[in-house]
């Protein structure tokens, strides 16, 4: 149901959206039933002349089941939701599948630097492509990212991937994603990082294999030329 409001463009997004829907319908039923009973009681027991209130302590087992049965039902729902949450979290955050490529994401006040592996699909080779505020990925490829921060805590957020991971200075944090849809989407910083916090938008370009190769070709030529002139 999240896709009604924002596209889902990664495998993780599908799983998280599924869990969101499960929670939505579970708590939705609770919400409607609880509010229904609540307003029903308010209406039924509004003050009427000559009608006295009942004396109910709610201490006997017989009376208590009015709250203890819902209580057990809450526990049952919690168990289901915990199981769902753990299963999805495990896939999304805990276990990184074997990646096809690795990219490096560097956060700083107030910009994102992305290091893409070049056509050789290896980082730390001369054909790496470094961009600022612009991330290019190939659709259907499993990426691992290495996230670092130069200064304060930032958070690498790609809403269409349902991906969010804080970038913590002094640590390299790994994560992954696998795009499922081409297009251009927003990347944002989600953790307050100072005056320019709103000035950290970056563009995510999810491209087909051909488009991506073309883009890489353009930039590796430049990168190679730059590397050549340095040596």
């Amino acid at each position: 149901m999240l896709e009604w409001l924002i596209p889902a463009a990664s495998t993780s997004a599908d799983e998280i959206d599924w869990l969101f829907a499960v929670i939505f319908y579970t708590v939705g039923v609770w919400f409607v039933v609880a509010q229904g009973i609540f307003f029903g009681l308010i209406f039924k027991f509004r003050r009427r002349p000559g009608v006295r209130s009942l004396y109910v302590a709610g201490e006997t087992k017989d009376e208590k089941r009015w709250i203890s049965w819902p209580h057990y039902a809450v526990i049952a729902c919690d168990v289901v939701l915990i199981a769902g949450a753990i299963a999805v979290w495990r896939d999304v955050k805990q276990v990184i599948p074997p990646p096809d490529e690795t990219i490096r994401v560097i956060a700083q006040q107030w910009a994102w630097t992305f290091v893409h592996p070049g056509p050789d699909r290896q980082l730390d080779t001369p054909d790496d492509v470094v961009t600022v505020n612009e991330l290019h990925v190939r659709n259907g490829t499993t990426y691992e990212f290495e996230l670092t921060s130069q200064d304060v805590v930032h958070s690498f957020s790609i809403p269409v991937f349902r991906l969010k991971q804080d970038a913590v200075p002094g640590r390299m944090i790994k994560g992954w994603f696998r795009p499922t849809k081409t297009g251009t989407f927003d990347i944002a910083c989600a953790e307050m990082c100072g005056l320019g916090h709103a000035l950290m938008p970056a563009a995510l370009h999810i491209e087909s294999a051909e488009e991506h190769a073309a883009w890489l070709g353009e930039h590796t030529a430049v990168a190679a030329a730059a590397a050549g002139s340095r040596s």
Binding site: I23, W30, V88, W89, K93, K164
Partner: peptide
């Protein structure tokens, strides 16, 4: 009650990935 039920979305770690800081 609304505050309570919406807390479940955030307490569940996997949906919190998306909803955190929104």
């Amino acid at each position: 009650l609304i505050g309570g039920v919406t807390g479940i979305f955030l307490g569940a770690n996997a949906t919190d990935i998306y909803l955190h800081d929104t």
